[in-house]
Amino acid sequence: MIEVKGLVKTYGPKRAVDGVTFTVKRGDILGFLGPNGAGKSTTMKMITGFLRPDAGTAKVDGVDVTVDPVAVKSKLGYLPESAPAYPEMTVEEFLGFIADVRGFRSPDAKAAQVDRAIKLTHLNPVRKQTIETLSKGFKQRVGFAQALLHDPAVLILDEPTDGLDPNQKNEVRSLIKSMAVEKAVILSTHILEEVDAICNRVIIISQGKVVADETPTQLRARKPGARIDEIFRELTRGDI
C-alpha cells in the first residue's frame, strides 16, 4: 500500500531525512520509532504530500505523491502531530467541513459519514461544542475522527496517543487495532510499550536514517533479556 523509496529532506545544513526506504502492506501496523528530531514527522509529512521531498519518492496505492499529490491525499487519512483543528468550529461543523472536502456533498451522505466518525471516536457528548473548549483528549479524538471520516485505506498517525491519559491511550490503541485488518497504518510514537501493544512491525529511525526494520519479536531478539528501551538506546546512540 505504501512504498517509500530513498526519501531525502534537507533543512539548511541539516539533513532531516536521509534516504528513508520502507514498504507497508495492507494489514500492517507499522510503529515508527525514534528520538525527537530524528525525522519521523518529516518523513510522514512527505508521504502525505505536505512537504515536497528533495529526492526520492513515496507511493500510496501505486500513486506517486510527487506526481499526483491530490490523488494521494484523497486516499489517506492523516492525523498531524497535536491534532490541529479550527478552534471556532463545533465538532459537528468541523467534521462536516472535512466531509465536504472529502467529496460527501449530499446532506445525507455527509451526515452519515460524520455520524460514523463521531460514533467510532466516542465524540457524541461534545458534538455541539466548539473545539477550543475541548480537553486535550477530546481534541485528539476530533483529529482522529477527521482522519477516519472517509474510511481511508491508509492511515498515517503522528503521535496519536500523545497527551492522553492511560484509559484514553488504551481506547485509541484498540481502535487502531480494530481497524487495521483492512488498512495500512503508520503511527509514530516515542512510547516503546505502544509498539509491543499494537504494532506488528517496527522501524527505528535515527539521524534521518532507518536503523532497524523488523517485527517487535526480532527487535527483542537482538539482545535477549534486555529491555526494549535499552535496545532502542543502543540503536539511536548517534542522536544523543
Binding site: G49, F50, V70, P84, Q146
Partner: peptide
C-alpha cells in the same frame, strides 16, 4: 497542515 493534506490544490 490539515488543509494541505486534504485533497485540495
Amino acid at each position: 497542515e490539515l488543509l494541505f493534506t486534504l485533497p485540495v490544490t
